[in-house]
């Protein structure tokens, strides 16, 4: 008996995870580590890059842009995503599954394709500009691209599923008896949602908010393609430091700031809700 138990252990021995772990350590942790360490070594220890960062007006503006855009996107995702999730979670399973399929599928459509779609829609010859002219709201066709509106819109388009999916999961975990009890005690629909359903769905809201906000902080493609000068974000700044200025150490300082903020958010989230909530289920 003990021999067979051991052999079954052999088929699922923890050591089987070693290749994947070693792979990530060598190709993910190590390169990022050396990128970050490069920001304080030149070749000896120095805080020059961080002093430069602190004194740079451009950095503070870009940091402000990054946070402002990420907060706006997170807020819009919540305002649109929560009602969507509530409706999906209260639908009969077949219809709910169909809508959820669309939401999850959209995550798997290329990010670049989805951003390109907004270029087509909001461009000078796009349908929005045509409609504004046709309805008399604008005298002539003009591009609605390269501003905060187009960036927030496209980022919301990309990140909305990351709010909807965890909130649906949280709503589905609510005991139906509590909802029925609230209603039978005379609470109206709005009160039941506000006093019973919403508080119980908070873990899902937290997961969605953290995911959307953290992913937004690191965005590159959307602000680069659809944004203007005022939408320069941290990832874009890093890219230009490396590719145009060849200032690796300075780029590393930016990366350190971004990573520290990300880490702080996740630590706070982990304290309160546990990161393993993010793990589990399949697909994205």
């Amino acid at each position: 008996m003990s021999a067979s138990t051991r052999s079954s252990r052999g088929l699922a021995s923890p050591w089987l995870a070693l290749p994947a772990v070693a792979f990530l350590l060598v190709l993910f942790v190590l390169p990022i580590g050396s990128f970050l360490v490069g920001s304080v070594l030149d070749p000896d220890f120095t805080l020059r890059n961080f002093q430069r960062l602190e004194a740079s007006r451009a950095f503070w503006i870009v940091l402000q842009n990054t946070i402002r855009i990420s907060v706006t996107v997170t807020l819009v995702c919540f305002l649109v995503g929560y009602p969507m999730a509530l409706r999906i979670a209260t639908l009969r399973p077949a219809i709910a599954a169909a809508i959820l399929l669309v939401v999850v599928l959209s995550v798997w459509i290329s990010l670049l394709v989805r951003n390109y779609a907004w270029m087509v829609l909001l461009g000078r010859e796009g349908i929005v500009s045509s409609a504004l002219v046709a309805l008399g709201y604008a005298a002539e066709r003009r591009s609605l691209l390269y501003n905060e509106f187009s960036v927030v819109l496209a980022m919301t388009h990309v990140l909305l599923p990351f709010m909807v999916i965890p909130v649906v999961a949280a709503l589905r975990a609510i005991d139906p008896a509590l909802v029925r009890a609230g209603a039978s005690l005379g609470a109206g629909a709005g009160t039941v949602v506000r006093r019973v359903v919403f508080p119980l769905s908070l873990p899902g809201v937290a997961t969605g908010t953290v995911l959307v906000f953290v992913l937004a902080l690191g965005f590159y493609v959307t602000p680069a393609v659809l944004g203007g000068r005022g939408q320069m974000m941290l990832a874009m700044m890093m890219e230009s430091e490396v590719n145009e200025q060849l200032a690796w150490g300075y780029a590393g300082a930016h990366a350190a700031v971004l990573l520290v903020v990300t880490l702080l958010i996740f630590t706070a989230y982990n304290r309160r809700f546990g990161v393993d909530r993010l793990w589990g289920g399949h697909g994205k």
């Binding site: 990022i32 902080l217 690191g218 590159y220 990832a235 990366a255 971004l258 990573l259």
Partner: peptide, 10 residues
């Protein structure tokens, strides 16, 4: 979770 730009540069 980590910004794809950080991963890419690294």
């Amino acid at each position: 979770i980590v910004s794809p730009m950080i991963t890419a540069i690294a």
